[in-house]
């Protein structure tokens, strides 16, 4: 069974969001998503300083098998991207909620968090996807 930590928020597109101090959000993809994708070998992420809007396509995540668009669950400015994961994308498979994080975002609309799913809701969503 894929892990779904209780303290995170989730999108239906299989991203997670963790709140840090201030209005900083850390995002990544879920354990369910990395398992479905298989061996991840390429990440294309927005540059630091980019301003991104909720649910816009912000990059690509590619596995040996397939390529998927990456969406952001929250709007804001990218304050950091995980360069270690860009250089060694397999970390997204091995630690999707830890060292495999993707972006840090200074949120412009923190109220967007209310629209995201709880761990329970996300599990129900993935169960429906089989």
């Amino acid at each position: 069974m894929p892990e779904t930590p209780q303290d995170l928020k989730y999108s239906k597109e299989h991203e997670w969001v963790r709140m840090e101090d201030g209005d900083i959000a850390v995002i990544g993809i879920t354990d369910f998503a990395q398992d479905m994708l298989g061996d991840i070998v390429f990440l294309q992420l927005p540059e630091e300083g980019s301003v991104i809007a909720q649910m816009a396509k912000i990059g690509e995540i590619e596995s040996v098998k397939s390529v998927s668009d990456l969406f952001t669950p929250v709007s804001g400015e990218v304050t950091a991207r995980n360069t270690a994961a860009i250089d060694a994308p397999e970390v997204v498979n091995s630690a999707p909620y830890g060292d495999g994080w993707l972006l840090r975002i200074r949120m412009s609309h923190p109220a967007e968090l209310e629209q995201l799913l709880t761990a329970e809701e996300y599990e129900a969503h993935t169960a429906a996807q089989g």
Binding site: G38, D39, V64, K65, E90, N93
Partner: peptide, 9 residues
């Protein structure tokens, strides 16, 4: 079967 544990592994 396309894979069991993972293609790279």
């Amino acid at each position: 079967p396309v894979q069991y544990t993972g293609i790279v592994e």
